[in-house]
């Protein structure tokens, strides 16, 4: 295994614990690593934007003798005029271009995929569902006539809950209330799902710190548990020094 990978594994463990130090308090170690992450992620975005969009669509095409990318290049130059206040009004044209292009794509795309398709998929073939699952089937996670009708009724109720052109009275009030209950079930489920996603990420980081996500021979070379212990000692020591300095400063001020 190359030394760079061993050093990298130690550094990533150290940085992981630096981020987790935020759970104690907003401290200088966390801030330092936070800014390191910012710098790296912005740099990564810029590099990938260049190699993913600018190079293939402008540089490579110009090298092939195509002239249409020159228009894109002119638009880019106009966009950069935003840096010079005197000419910053020129940047409105590329901004207008990009907003209009994606508004046009979204207008038809959203109407097609999120409106027509979602509506079409929401009306199940009730006879086929009843023939396959009956009213309710535990074996198919509750699929059946009841669930299909609940889906249609829930969707309609949620949509009617956000319909404000008619007052929410009598029948409309009941439907709207059912819509709220369906929304609550959905928000609760989404919350639980998100929490479990974050927790599994956290478990992944802990597994790396303990070397459980690597083959045994790799873990023996890298010694992630030792890296975790050394990092912990360094970070805890630094936090103690920082706290002592802070209390001294407060004492001097007070």
């Amino acid at each position: 295994m190359p030394t760079t990978e061993i050093v990298g594994a130690w550094i990533s463990i150290f940085l992981t614990l630096c981020i987790f130090s935020y759970l104690y308090d907003d401290n200088p170690i966390y801030k330092l690593v936070e800014h390191l992450f910012l710098g790296v992620s912005i740099g990564y975005s810029v590099v990938e934007a260049y190699f993913g969009a600018f190079k293939p669509n402008v540089i490579n095409k110009l090298a092939d003798g195509q002239l249409t990318p020159l228009v894109a290049l002119v638009l880019v130059l106009m966009l950069f005029s935003k840096v010079i206040p005197r000419f910053s009004y020129l940047a409105r044209i590329p901004i207008a271009f990009i907003v209009a292009a994606f508004a046009g794509v979204k207008l038809t795309g959203e109407a097609n995929s999120n409106l027509m398709t979602q509506v079409a998929q929401s009306m199940p073939n009730l006879a086929a569902v009843y023939a396959e699952h009956g009213l309710w089937s535990w074996d198919a996670d509750g699929a059946g006539l009841f669930s299909s009708l609940f889906l249609v009724a829930g969707l309609s109720a949620c949509l009617l809950h956000f319909y404000f052109s008619a007052p929410h009275q009598r029948g409309m009030k009941v439907v709207s209330r059912f819509g709220v209950l369906v929304l609550m079930l959905s928000f609760g489920a989404s919350f639980g799902y998100t929490v479990m996603g974050r927790i599994s990420l956290c478990i992944g980081r802990v597994q790396e710190m303990l070397g459980l996500n690597r083959p045994i021979d790799e873990a023996e070379i890298i010694q992630p548990q030792l890296a975790t212990l050394v990092s912990l000692v360094v970070i805890v020591g630094s936090l103690v020094v920082w706290r002592v300095q802070q209390s001294r400063q407060r004492g001097a001020e007070g």
Binding site: L115, S122, S147, V152, C158, F162, Y193
Partner: peptide, 20 residues
């Protein structure tokens, strides 16, 4: 799975349709 596939889908579709 029922919560994720039925009430969750119903509410999400309503939100998607509204957003669209």
């Amino acid at each position: 799975n029922w919560i994720m596939d039925v009430p969750n889908i119903a509410a999400r579709r309503a939100i998607f349709i509204g957003a669209a």
